[in-house]
């Protein structure tokens, strides 16, 4: 079974973001980077499937600047077999259609039985790239999965809807699935597996060789939202904070007796 997993490297969202000079994205220096949370579930599900079927080959692909190689290595340490780094220092300027076109161009004719992606990226949150890649390749597309099974012919899955409801869905392979939080329990790479991963091949492909599409969306600007809420911000010594909060709750609510 041939499996592709597409992962994105995203900044730690607890960071303080500064807007870049062009005013269209955040400044990328001084940020900590990690694997998009949703993509951890994608990698884990691919590895679980490989463990189940025995014979499988998992390619981990990421489009981005040189730093994304670190994230590819993490996915290899989780159980991926080989990496593909589509080198693009300007991937943040591309719209989801371009990113999807790049990935589809790479995957076309490679005969993947299954492609795993996250349901969305944490920085962009467009929830588009997975569906677009699947549709470009003409394979079955199943999104927002919280349960996944594959018998080698069909994917049987549950997709998450709102308010605790789930839908049972199925489709023939080849298929692309997008993974929702909670689909599985992503493993932590063990030290021996981290060592083993260092020997796994990571192929570099220049983005220019794969990009054959034009953007359909233009970025006009990026900015922090204006704080509307006039909420109080309390800072300082913990004991003092606790005293002040208690005072506020006594005054403003009826729950403290």
């Amino acid at each position: 079974m041939k499996i592709l997993v597409c992962i994105k490297q995203v900044p730690d969202l607890e960071s303080r973001f500064k807007i870049n000079a062009q005013g269209t994205w955040f400044e990328e220096t001084d940020l900590a980077w990690r694997m998009n949370e949703y993509d951890e579930y994608a990698v884990e599900q691919a590895v679980l499937l490989k463990e189940q079927v025995g014979e499988a080959d998992i390619t981990i692909l990421s489009v981005g600047a040189d730093r994304v190689v670190e994230t590819i290595k993490k996915a290899l340490a989780m159980g991926g077999d080989r990496g593909v780094h589509v080198r693009d220092a300007h991937s943040y300027e591309k719209d989801p259609f371009e990113i999807a076109s790049i990935i589809a161009e790479y995957a076309r004719d490679k005969g993947y039985d299954l492609i795993f992606m996250g349901m969305q990226s944490q920085d962009r949150g467009s929830a588009q790239v997975g569906v677009l890649v699947g549709e470009m390749l003409g394979v079955s597309v199943l999104t927002t999965l919280v349960r996944f099974e594959c018998d080698g012919q069909r994917v049987r899955a549950e997709r998450e809807l709102e308010g605790g409801l789930r839908a049972k869905v199925s489709a023939p392979i080849p298929a692309l699935v997008t993974c929702q939080l909670g689909l599985n329990k992503p493993r932590y790479p063990t030290l021996p597996n981290i060592m083993k991963a260092k020997k796994k091949e990571i192929q570099t492909v220049e983005v220019g060789d794969l990009l054959k599409a034009n953007a359909r969306i233009e970025t006009i600007g990026m900015y922090p939202p204006v704080r509307k809420g006039g909420g109080l911000i309390l800072e300082g010594d913990v004991s003092d904070l606790a005293e002040r909060l208690l005072g506020i709750l006594k005054e403003k609510t009826t729950v403290i007796r």
Partner: peptide, 21 residues
């Protein structure tokens, strides 16, 4: 869950730019 699944499929079929959320 209905919209984010369907919108990119429709958008691609129409050659449209797609804006999420």
């Amino acid at each position: 869950s209905y919209g984010w699944d369907l919108a990119p499929r429709v958008g691609l079929a129409l050659g449209a730019g797609i804006l999420s959320e």
